[in-house]
C-alpha cells in the first residue's frame, strides 16, 4: 500500500533523456534513499514525484491521485500541504529571519499570523536552534540553515518529505548531525522521505534504497542478512 508511486516515467530535456521507464513506490512513513551518480536522473525523478516537473510519459500517483491530472494550482496546494522540501542550499528566503522562513509555508497556507508564528517557534528547540529565531538566513551557519530548512519543510505536517542532497554542502560531522535530526524528526512525525543522495553514509539512514542509473531505477533483489 504505497502513498507515492511512479510508473514507467519518461522525461527528456531536448535530446537528453533524463528518465526512461523509471518506476518506484514509497510506503507510508518509509525513508527511501534514491542513489545514483551525477546526471543519472535522480533529481529529475524527485522533481517528477513532487509535481514540480510533469513527466513526458508514465504516471505519478499520490494517495491514489494522478498528479498529471491536477491543475498547477492544485499541485501547488499539494506541495504546500502534503509535501515538504529540503535542498542542498538556497531554499530559504534570504531577506527573512529564521522564524519568518519557518512560518512562511503556514502563512502561505492561510494560517493566521499568531498561530503560524507560535507553531514555527515551537520547532526551534526541537531542532536545537533555540535563540536563533531572529537571525537572518545569512547569519546562520550551513548546518543551522539546513536545520531551519528541515523545520520549514516539516512545519506544515507533510506526508512526504523530499530531500535532495540535504547534507551536500556540509562537512561530515555537521551532515551526520543534520541527518540524525532529520531522521529522528520524521520518525516521530511519521513522515515518509524521498532522500536523494550520492552519499552512501547519508543513504544508510534510509530504510532501503533504490539506484537510478541512466534514467532507469534499479531496485535491490537480494537482501543479505
Amino acid at each position: 500500500m504505497s502513498i507515492l508511486s511512479a510508473d514507467h516515467l519518461t522525461k527528456s530535456y531536448g535530446s537528453t533523456v533524463a528518465l526512461h521507464d523509471a518506476s518506484m513506490s514509497l510506503q507510508p512513513g518509509e525513508i527511501l534513499a534514491v542513489m545514483g551518480p551525477s546526471g543519472s536522473g535522480k533529481s529529475t525523478l524527485l522533481h517528477c514525484l513532487a509535481g514540480i516537473f510533469t513527466p513526458d510519459g508514465g504516471t505519478v500517483t499520490f494517495n491514489g491521485r494522478d498528479l498529471a491530472a491536477l491543475s498547477d494550482r492544485e499541485r501547488t496546494r499539494l506541495r504546500r500541504t502534503d509535501f515538504g522540501f529540503v535542498f542542498q542550499f538556497g531554499q530559504l528566503v534570504p531577506e527573512l529571519t529564521a522564524v519568518d522562513n519557518m512560518a512562511l509555508p503556514l502563512l502561505l497556507a492561510g494560517v493566521r499570523r499568531r498561530p503560524a508564528y507560535d507553531r514555527a517557534a515551537a520547532w526551534f528547540p526541537r531542532l536545537g536552534l533555540t535563540g536563533l529565531e531572529g537571525r537572518r538566513t545569512g547569519e546562520l551557519s550551513g548546518g543551522q540553515a539546513q536545520r531551519v530548512a528541515v523545520g520549514r519543510a516539516l512545519v506544515t505536517g507533510p506526508t512526504v518529505l523530499f530531500a535532495d542532497e540535504p547534507t551536500g554542502a556540509l562537512d561530515s560531522l555537521t551532515g551526520e548531525n543534520v541527518m540524525d535530526l532529520m531522521v529522528d524528526t520524521v520518525r516521530t512525525e511519521g513522515t515518509a522521505v524521498i532522500l536523494v543522495t550520492h552519499d552512501a553514509r547519508v543513504a544508510a539512514h534510509a530504510d532501503r534504497q533504490i539506484t537510478v542509473r541512466d534514467g532507469a531505477v534499479i531496485a535491490p533483489e537480494v537482501h543479505v542478512a
Binding site: D72, R73, T76, R77, R79, R80, T81, F83, F85, F87, G90, Q91, L92, V93, P94, E95, L104, P105, L108, A109, R152, T156
Partner: peptide, 13 residues
C-alpha cells in the same frame, strides 16, 4: 530568487 523559494514552499502564482 526569493519568489522562487516561495514557490517551492507552496506559494501559488
Amino acid at each position: 530568487e526569493r519568489y522562487a523559494a516561495m514557490r517551492l514552499v507552496g506559494a501559488e502564482r
